[in-house]
Design a protein around this nucleic acid. Structure first.
Length: 456
RNA sequence: GUGGUUGUAGCUCAGUUGGUUAGAGCGCCGGAUUGUGGUUCCGGAGGCCGCGGGUUCAAGUCCCGUCUUCCACCCCA
């Protein structure tokens, strides 16, 4: 038998028991907050049709797509001409018609269109699933990662924005992560290009502005210049960069209010701020430079930034016409997304995971010998019926080995029940944390364990 | 996709201008201790030096290719 060298494809990761428990801790926290606000879970398949996935992003997102080859003899169906030309673009539709989803928003749009007659609007759904992107992995960027999304569809009310901001705040507070919620609205960005007379260049403008905190104002101006923006644009960008602390009362805000779009945008921000509770408000930063690359956003946009971590831990915003491409116009929505893997990284860096782990085995029964095995095995049932997470060592290994097993797995209690104990009816209970032992009958032991574990 | 970087024991890493049998710490296994883990002491196992090719009397070491890692860009959670 030849040995196969095992490895993982680029950017793919395994998670051990400890990591999975920590990831689930994050997921459970997010999930419980989503549900507290009335969101319901859905799940969608990992694969979608390429026609669906290409619905929004265009060329850029196409590069990030993992495509799946058609089943069967897929080359047979490929057109000879495309094969000979080796033209990727024209050949692709011949050999691949599905791909892995790269976010949860496009599948949501597809879902809503397909199930529109079953849904009650406003539709509040959450979705916690992995997504895949074929870009080069680096810090905080994975080829397979989990998003935790909550979206409200079919409601224009800004109360939704407020609630989603509160969800951000509540989740990160529960997790112990200090962060700021950067808030802006796309409408102000539109107002800026309108004032500059460059309405047609909104996407280019937002992409460049988005780099501000990374490359600085001078570089941004340079890029804007190269992209064909004018002095008016430069002035506006400089002004918003300089008025980061009190933007809403700044001169530039008044300027933006001269356009209808800008006026509405400022009203939106003021309305949202007026509805947010005081505690959450302290974490909200009006940030007129926040742009967000994705061009389907049309209203308020958010991004979560934590100190010491470049890149966002979450983001979101309002989109007016997400399902329009799929033949269902007029459905407005707003949503947020938590980046599970990045949240994990930050919590690991800052040591924020709780130390008490309630998921592990609480008590191990030692397996001494063949004579007592069956009798002790019965005890596991009794212990489990009381809710104690119980293990019975499956072989008669050396005591030392069994104790080491308990130690390595951080099991806090061990019950030793050999022939000696079974004869007397008093079992030995060992506390692995302090090494103390005591003898007692099974009922007493159960109540000791219950007390001890309940107090943690 | 562009540019750079990395790979030696399960893990973290040494390994000289190319030169005997590739090392350490931690971990693992066994013993001291046949009913007691985490400490201590003693012993042991474990390497296609990422993979493929080349240069050389000789390659972990130099060259080329490839895969992988990490980082920056692009873009983004």
């Amino acid at each position: 038998m030849s040995k196969v060298k095992v490895s993982l494809p680029k950017g793919m990761r395994d998670f051990g028991p400890e990591q999975v428990q920590k990831r689930q801790y994050i997921i459970n926290t997010i999930k419980s907050v989503f549900e507290l606000y009335g969101f319901m879970p859905i799940e969608t398949p990992v694969m979608e049709n390429l026609t669906t996935l290409n619905g929004k992003g265009g060329e850029e997102s196409d590069k990030l797509l993992f495509k799946v080859l058609n089943s069967g003899d897929y080359l047979k169906k490929a057109e000879q001409q495309h094969l000979e030309e080796k033209n990727y673009k024209s050949l692709l539709p011949n050999i691949s018609e599905k791909g892995l989803r790269y976010d949860l928003t496009v599948p949501l749009a597809r879902y809503v269109v397909m199930h529109q007659n079953e849904l009650t609007f406003p539709f509040k759904r959450y979705q916690i699933q992995p997504v895949w992107r074929a870009d080069r992995p680096q810090k905080g960027r994975y080829r397979e990662f989990w998003q935790c999304d909550a979206d409200v569809l079919g409601s224009d009310s800004l109360l939704n924005e407020v609630e989603l901001i509160q969800i951000f705040a509540k989740v990160f507070k529960q997790l112990g992560i200090e962060m700021n919620i950067h808030l802006n609205t796309r409408k102000l960005l539109v107002a800026m290009v309108e004032l500059s007379g460059k309405q047609d260049k909104l996407t280019s403008f937002t992409v460049i502005l988005d780099k501000l905190d990374k490359i600085g104002i001078d570089k941004v101006i340079e890029l804007l210049n190269e992209a064909g923006f004018n002095a008016k644009t430069f002035d506006l960008v400089k002004a918003i960069a300089n008025n980061s602390s009190d933007f809403l009362n700044s001169e530039v805000a008044k300027q933006l209010a001269q356009t209808e779009t800008g006026k509405v945008g400022l009203q939106e921000l003021n309305k949202i701020l007026s509805l947010i509770d005081d505690e959450t408000k302290q974490q909200v930063k009006i940030d007129a430079t926040l742009a967000r690359g994705l061009d389907y956003y049309t209203g308020p946009i958010f991004e979560i930034k934590a100190a010491g971590f470049s890149g966002s831990l979450g983001s979101g915003g309002r989109y007016d016409n997400l399902t329009g491409n799929f033949g269902l116009p007029g459905v407005s929505g707003v949503g947020i997304s938590f980046g599970l893997d990045r949240i994990y990284d930050v919590m690991k860096d800052q040591n924020l995971f709780p130390t008490s782990n309630t998921n592990i085995t609480q008590v191990l029964l030692i397996n001494f010998d063949k004579e007592t095995e069956q009798q002790v095995f019965q005890l596991t049932t009794q212990l489990r019926q009381t809710g104690l997470k119980t293990e019975f060592y499956p072989t008669q290994a050396k005591l030392k080995k069994q104790m080491k097993y308990a130690n390595d797995k951080n099991i806090p209690f061990v019950i030793l029940a050999g022939s000696r104990e079974l004869e007397s009816g008093k079992l030995t209970l060992k506390n692995m944390q302090n090494g103390e032992q005591q003898e007692a009958d099974i009922k007493t032991i159960i109540s000791i364990l219950k007390d001890s574990i309940g107090n943690e």
